[in-house]
């Protein structure tokens, strides 16, 4: 489903973020990408969502090279991908409901469908009672659940989670981990970038370790 072929990414001033990476992720997998800060985890995720283009090599999504997608059409491609960030990236002037609904609105989804789907998804992440709240009225863990709900609501094929536990306390981290596993259980591919040891150890799925932009280990049932 996702395939990296000899991919390198060099940022200006010759900073090598990824160095000749080869990697295949199959549909339905749960992949944890671990490594120190600056090892290239975020870059790897950004290459999948086509926020960055590789300096060398090709990234394929469903057998299609991402570099072949016209810039104008990138937003449409991104609808296949749900993204979760360390800093949540919720829209501050929108309520919980509106934040999740926004991802459907940009699709042109009908109002009836939105009114139906959003509460459904909020129910999955357990946030139905916070529907009318604004992001600043929520805790970090709650915000992350909303951001996860927003990523989920369009039925994406892949969820990219970049340090989702970065700003969370252990309890919330545990909640989010559970949720990610639950979503994966429903068939969605998940790529998780983290340096949270406990989280990775609890997941007990494939672990890819990056060091200085290179893959140093790739285990099917790995630990941190």
């Amino acid at each position: 489903m996702i395939k990296f072929e000899n991919v390198s990414k060099v940022y200006p001033e010759n900073f090598v973020a990824l160095d000749n990476v080869n990697l295949t992720i199959e549909s339905g997998e749960f992949v944890s990408v671990v490594g120190q800060s600056g090892a290239g985890k975020s870059t790897l995720l950004k290459l999948i969502s086509a926020e960055e283009q590789p300096s060398e090599g090709v990234v394929y999504f469903n057998e299609r090279p991402l570099s072949s997608i016209k810039k104008r059409l990138l937003p449409y491609f991104r609808r296949n991908i749900g993204t979760v960030f360390q800093d949540f990236k919720l829209l501050p002037k929108k309520t919980v409901f509106e934040n999740v609904a926004y991802a459907l609105e940009v699709f042109g989804e009908t109002n009836e469908n939105i009114a139906e789907k959003v509460p459904e998804i909020l129910d999955i992440v357990g946030m139905t009672d916070k529907m009318e709240k604004y992001p600043h009225q929520l805790s970090g863990g709650e915000k992350q659940k909303i951001s996860l709900a927003r990523a989920l609501v369009c039925n994406p094929q892949v969820i990219l989670a970049d340090e989702p536990s970065g700003n969370l306390d252990p309890d919330s981290t545990w909640d989010i981990t559970q949720l990610l596993l639950k979503i994966n259980g429903l068939g969605t591919t998940i790529v998780l970038a983290t340096h949270n040891k406990e989280m990775v150890d609890k997941i007990e799925k494939r672990v890819i370790r990056l060091e200085n932009g290179k893959i140093v280990s790739d285990e099917i049932k790995g630990r941190y």
Binding site: E51, P75, R78, R79, T83, K89, P92, Y102, A103
Partner: peptide, 16 residues
């Protein structure tokens, strides 16, 4: 500014 980034990432087109 930040909102534009978020909107793009959830798949909103530039026009939208």
């Amino acid at each position: 500014k930040q909102e534009f980034e978020v909107m793009r990432l959830v798949g909103a087109s530039n026009l939208y």
